[in-house]
Amino acid sequence: MFDRFFSAALVFCVLAGGTLAIGTAMLEQPAAEVLAVQLPRVEVTGKRPVPADKVAHADHAADAQVQ
């Protein structure tokens, strides 16, 4: 019987402690401002690879022209 009361009290204390810890962390004022750096935009240029079916088709067309 004691273990039921003890476990309920323990769970209540853990939940209350967690709530207090989260609450105090949310209400804390930040110690200093955070400096942010904004980098310039990067433009990536490139060509997409040719799909395999078009490569195979081009190979057959090249073979036909060679013969």
Rank of each mutant, 00 (worst) to 15 (best):
A9L: 09
T45M: 12
K47M: 08
V37L: 09
Q38A: 14
S7M: 04
V14P: 01
L10Y: 03
F2Q: 15
Q38I: 14
Q67N: 02
M26G: 02
D63M: 05
V37E: 11
L39K: 05
Q29H: 10
A32L: 03
D3L: 11
D53Q: 10
K54T: 04
L35A: 07
E28K: 14
L10F: 07
A16N: 11
D63P: 00
V14T: 10
F12T: 14
M26D: 04
L10H: 06
V50I: 15
A8L: 09
R41N: 10
P49M: 02
V44D: 06
V11N: 14
A32Y: 04
A21Y: 15
V50D: 03
R4T: 12
G17S: 09
K47Q: 14
D63G: 02
G23W: 08
V42N: 08
V11F: 07
T24I: 09
M26Q: 04
G23F: 02
L15S: 04
R4N: 11
T24V: 13
A32W: 01
V14W: 02
H60N: 10
A31C: 02
Q38T: 15
E43H: 13
M1V: 06
K47N: 09
K54I: 05
V34W: 02
Q29S: 11
Q67E: 00
V50N: 03
V42P: 01
A16Y: 07
V44S: 04
M26A: 05
T24Q: 06
F5Q: 04
V50M: 03
Q65F: 03
A21W: 09
K54L: 09
G17V: 07
Q65H: 06
K47T: 09
P40Q: 13
P49Y: 01
G46C: 03
A31R: 13
P51I: 01
F2C: 05
G18C: 03
G18V: 01
A56Q: 13
A31L: 13
D3I: 11
L20R: 06
A56T: 15
E33F: 14
S7T: 11
V42K: 07
M1R: 09
A58M: 13
F5S: 06
V14A: 09
P40K: 12
H60Q: 14
Q29I: 10
T19L: 14
V42S: 08
R48M: 14
A56Y: 07
S7K: 09
F2W: 15
V14E: 02
Q67S: 00
L10G: 06
Q29E: 10
L20K: 08
A9F: 05
A9S: 09
E43W: 11
S7D: 10
Q67F: 01
P40A: 10
Q65I: 00
G17N: 04
T19R: 12
A52N: 08
Q67D: 01
L10M: 09
Q65C: 06
A25C: 06
T45W: 05
A56D: 15
A31H: 12
L10S: 11
V66Q: 03
V44Y: 04
A62D: 00
G17D: 02
P30G: 12
T24D: 06
E43V: 15
